[in-house]
Simulated assay, not measured.
Amino acid sequence: MNEQCGNLRIAGCSFSVHPMSDQFIEHILESLEHVDTSKVWMETDDVTTTVRGRIEHVFDVTKAILLTIADRGVHVAFQGTYSIGCPGDSSGDAFMTESRERMNELNSISIDQKIAAKFSLYPMGGGDYMDTIYSQIERMEANGVDVSRAHYSTRLDGDTHSIFTGLEDVFRETEKSGSSHTVMTVTVSANSPSNKEDAS
C-alpha cells in the first residue's frame, strides 16, 4: 500500500467492545447508532472499529460507546489502542477542521459509571515524557481516581469521566512533551461481578 503522509496530528483509536451478553451484537450495533460520530472518520470490520480525527472527538466517541453499553447494566470490556503521529496516516484529514465541541458530552455526562482500567503508554521518537506522565497520574489521583501499579501497565479505578479525562490528558501532554508518535493502550471493564468493591 502506497500512502502519502497527510496531517500527522490526526489522532485515532482502534478498539473492540465485548458485552458479556447473549445480545452482544444488538448492544454493539445500538451503541454505534446511538453515539454521534459525525466529527470522526469511522470504519468497522469484523475485528475492530477505528475512529480518527481530533483528539477530543476520538476520546468523546470511544467513551460514549463504552458508556452507552455499560448504562444498560451489562458487563462490558473495552480494549483500545490510541495513536497520534503515525507516519502515513492521511485518510480523514478533513475531520481535522471540525470545531472543538464534543457531540456526545451532554448525553455521556449524565451516566454515572464506575470502571476498572489499565493503560500503557508508548512515546516514540523522543520527548521528555516521564515527568509528564507522573504529573498527569497525580492529577488523576487528585480527581478521585484510585491509581495502582500493575504488570506492564498502570491500573485506574473510579468514575469513567475522571478516568477518560485523565487518559486524554496523559495522551495530549505526552505528545506536547516532544513525542513524535505516541501510542496508548487501554483496557476497561465495567459492571464486572469480579471487580474491586469500588469499581462496579
Rank of each mutant, 00 (worst) to 15 (best):
E3D: 04
S14K: 11
S14L: 10
F15Y: 15
M20Y: 12
S21V: 03
S21W: 06
D22H: 07
Q23Y: 15
H27W: 06
H27N: 06
E30L: 12
S31C: 11
H34A: 14
D36Q: 09
M42A: 15
T44A: 12
D45W: 08
D46A: 13
T48E: 11
T49D: 02
V58F: 03
V58E: 02
D60N: 03
V61T: 06
V61W: 06
T68N: 13
I69Q: 06
D71Q: 15
V74P: 04
H75P: 08
F78C: 12
Q79D: 14
G80E: 06
I84H: 01
C86N: 08
P87L: 13
G88F: 03
G88N: 05
D89H: 12
S90H: 00
S91G: 02
A94R: 10
M96R: 04
M96L: 01
M103Y: 08
S110M: 05
A116Q: 11
A116I: 11
S120Q: 13
Y122F: 15
G125P: 10
D131R: 12
D131K: 10
I133E: 15
Y134P: 04
E138I: 02
D146G: 09
S153K: 14
S153W: 00
S153L: 03
R155P: 07
L156I: 08
D157T: 10
S162R: 14
F164D: 03
L167R: 02
E168H: 12
V170S: 00
R172Y: 08
E173W: 03
E175H: 11
H181V: 05
V188Y: 07
S189Y: 06
A190P: 00
A190L: 03
N191Y: 04
N191E: 06
S192A: 08
S192L: 00
S194T: 13
K196S: 12
E197A: 10
